[in-house]
Amino acid sequence: MSLNVQIQKKYSRFQLDVSWEIKDELAVIFGPSGSGKSLSLHMVAGLVCPDSGTITSGSRIFYDRDKKISLSPQQRCMGYVFQSPALFPHMSAKENILYGGTGLDTADLIRRYKEVIDLFQLTGLESRKPAELSGGQKQRIAFARALIRKPDILLLDEPFSALDMQIRSEMWDFLRDIRRFIKIPVILVTHDVYEAYSLADRVIVYEDGCITDHGRPHEVFSPQAMPECETPLMFSFMLSRGYY
């Protein structure tokens, strides 16, 4: 499966004009705040309508201005994990996860629920309300909820940015682990260079609403392409991850 995105959106002080394509891989949209990363993800999910362009996956058209097609978020079957876990505070962890099982019959829902509980190591937390959970646990539940109905595409809008460094590092490992089980396009938005480098199969660099670079992480984050990568911190990080 692939995802083709070619979108334009104009606001009074900002203009987004991007075009990219990804396959069953983890693509990181990387760039500074205000460069249009999250806006792109909102458009892919159908939460914001572009002014023009197309968003397609194979023969499926999510948005095509010329053909006057614009599927609602409910029709797109995409999993979306926000920066805040956005768990429903009045529901338990179990209820939150089951809420994501739209369209599954009871038997499938129970089977999928057990699968995601195991996959996301949530056993014992099912009856807890979000207020009784740690940041990492909440985010794992948000992932389980987004994936229970087996979405066609997974969108991650800076899901680790609110976590402290240790939990964030654990969540990165966790995302690498679960990617062995979910073979769908995953798009991760981040402005964290380490996160982008360590997780991405492909990096798309945004700046001021445009794509300034794209490619494999070692190409995009080479010192020639991105002088900030020469900093000792970045170098030591890459060493620790075995990239050099």
Binding site: G46, L47, Q74, A86, F88, P89, Y99
Partner: peptide, 27 residues
Amino acid sequence: VDRDLIRVSYTLGRSELETFFKISLPL
């Protein structure tokens, strides 16, 4: 009511009416 909760509900395939009764109204 946090708008992200409503957006999440939509991306999980829930209709506006369902989201209203199950998320917005209880909160």
